[in-house]
């Protein structure tokens, strides 16, 4: 405990670094996955290609990716951008499926009735389909958020600072308190992100609060969460 109190500055700065690594992939992953997921919900061919690609990408071990990305991008191995790109790949791999399910969960009835009222195709997307896909999209982002925060610790293995540095350092020095500190910090960051996302969901989707989920949305939400934390 004394160690933690002595190193609060380090804990705080590594937490900020960690958050800095995680936010871009979560946000960009969402932005990229929404159009891909929409496409997948429209065409069964696109769906099978995108989801298979996502599954394969998700199978690549994190450490292999962190080593491979700089080679592919031609960046110095210590550039944090490598980690961001690797995390983004995972984020999209998970999020495309959620986004496809999210758009599929929009009731055909509502879409048809909106068309009948005179929504043009782009208005239908922005004003009807995207908001109604919201609850399932949010569930996907929450999974991506937790998974990204956990995965980002791998960065430490290639020498890029993150909360994972507490793991590598604690391991090398055989100092459990440090490893434990890193673990708690990761959990706290994940919890805070999840609270923020939940709050955003309630703010942006007030209509969703007391509504029973349509059966297809409920099904999409109850799919097993992919396992995270691959060392």
């Amino acid at each position: 405990m004394a160690w933690v109190l002595d190193h609060l500055d380090l804990v705080w700065s590594l937490t900020l670094t960690h958050v800095g690594l995680c936010v871009p992939p979560i946000v960009l992953g969402f932005v990229i996955s929404v159009p891909l997921g929409y496409w997948a919900s429209r065409s069964s061919a696109a769906r099978s290609v995108l989801l298979t690609a996502g599954n394969i990408a998700y199978t690549i071990p994190g450490i292999a990716l962190v080593v491979l990305v700089p080679v592919v991008l031609g960046l110095p191995i210590l550039n944090p951008l490598n980690v961001v790109v690797a995390l983004l790949l995972y984020a999209v791999a998970i999020m495309v499926r959620s986004a496809a399910d999210a758009f599929a969960s929009v009731a055909a009835e509502v879409r048809q009735s909106a068309t009948a009222q005179g929504f043009a195709a782009t208005q239908l997307f922005w004003r009807v389909e995207l908001p109604l896909a919201g609850p399932v999209l949010l569930a996907g982002v929450r999974v991506v958020s937790v998974s990204t925060i956990s995965l980002a610790t791998v960065a430490a293995l290639v020498g890029i600072p993150s909360l994972g540095s507490f793991f590598t350092d604690g391991f090398q020095r055989n100092f459990a308190v440090e490893t434990l500190t890193g673990l708690v910090a990761v959990l706290v960051v994940a919890a805070v992100f999840d609270l923020i996302l939940g709050g955003l969901g309630r703010l942006l989707m007030p209509w969703n609060r007391r509504r029973r989920l349509s059966s297809s949305a409920a099904k999409a939400l109850s799919q097993p969460i992919p396992t995270t934390g691959r060392f």
Partner: peptide, 11 residues
């Protein structure tokens, strides 16, 4: 246009 189950926009 009015349909069964109203087809109202839930949001």
């Amino acid at each position: 246009y009015v349909m069964q189950n109203s087809g109202l926009l839930p949001h």
